[in-house]
């Protein structure tokens, strides 16, 4: 394997994720500033010792907003991936193990999901469900279903053909028990690796919805929204956009690293 040299990078990625999870769980440990109330602080202050990432257009500390925003953004990403994972895996399991018309129906439905532009689908779902963090996350999750369904199905098909599964059927085990005992455990690890990879993707998609005005409503410090609000002042106050953008990038990069590493282990 020529990828051995990335080990330290994987470690670094794990550290980044750990840090962000810590932000999400105990934001108060990392900043003393209030993320939602700038008090009397001046607006649009440049980065300084007191405000690492500067202050935003109503005087709130941008670093504090990023720290407190971690819980919203991570939670949203987890919900999105959760929706894709649960629904997609279920569909993929049925399609892969049931074959026949059930498979045809499911896979055509998946084709349809895949062929409608994901962003358009998300926007539509947000409008139908109503605006809010959770709804935006669900909307993003729906567009991830297709990939999980397809991967799961191909895994199930692969595992089902394996000699030990055939042997299990041969020894008289029922469909259900084979599914639970053999097929699911052996199909799942690439699917879970995909799920980790998708977290980064979900963060990006949710922030894109936020950017277009269909994400988390203010004043919640969701990351996409922070960029979306700060971008107005990028010509005059670049820090509002650049720092949050870099953080999102680093976090997504880290989840991607971890996901890739996991996949290599699972493959």
């Amino acid at each position: 394997m020529r990828r051995r040299h990335i080990r330290p990078l994987t470690l670094a990625a794990a550290a980044v994720i750990a840090l962000v999870i810590a932000w999400a769980l105990a934001p108060g440990l990392f900043t003393r500033q209030d993320p939602n109330d700038g008090g009397t602080t001046a607006a649009l202050l440049a980065p300084s010792g007191a405000h690492w990432f500067g202050t935003d257009e109503i005087g709130r500390d941008v670093f504090a907003r990023m720290v407190y925003g971690a819980s919203h953004s991570l939670l949203a990403a987890l919900i999105a991936v959760g929706v894709g994972l649960v629904v997609g895996t279920a569909l993929g399991l049925i399609a892969g193990s049931r074959r026949g018309w059930a498979e045809d129906v499911i896979m055509r439905a998946v084709d349809v999901l895949l062929s409608i532009p994901a962003l358009l689908l998300s926007l539509t779902i947000v409008i139908i469900l109503g605006f809010g963090t959770v709804n935006a996350a669900i909307a993003v999750g729906v567009t991830a279903i297709a990939q999980f369904a397809r991967l799961t199905r191909s895994q199930v098909v692969r595992v089902s053909g394996a000699p030990y599964v055939q042997a299990a059927y041969g020894s008289g085990a029922g469909y259900g028990s084979v599914l639970v005992r053999h097929i699911v455990p052996n199909s799942l690890s690439p699917v879970l690796a995909l799920a980790v990879l998708q977290i980064g993707w979900a963060i990006l998609q949710i922030s894109t919805l936020g950017f277009l005005g269909y994400g988390t409503p203010p004043p919640t410090p969701e990351w996409g929204l922070i960029i979306a609000e700060g971008r107005n002042y990028v010509a005059t106050s670049w820090w509002l956009t650049v720092f949050p953008g870099l953080i999102i990038m680093i976090v997504v990069l880290a989840t991607h690293r971890l996901g890739t590493a996991l996949r290599q282990v699972s493959a």
């Binding site: 397809r150 991967l151 098909v157 692969r158 690439p190 980064g200 993707w201």
Partner: peptide, 16 residues
């Protein structure tokens, strides 16, 4: 085609 694409997708496609 399905199985090949099953794995692939928006962000992660290549890795899978």
């Amino acid at each position: 085609g399905h199985s090949l694409r099953a794995a692939s997708g928006q962000a992660d496609a290549p890795a899978t």
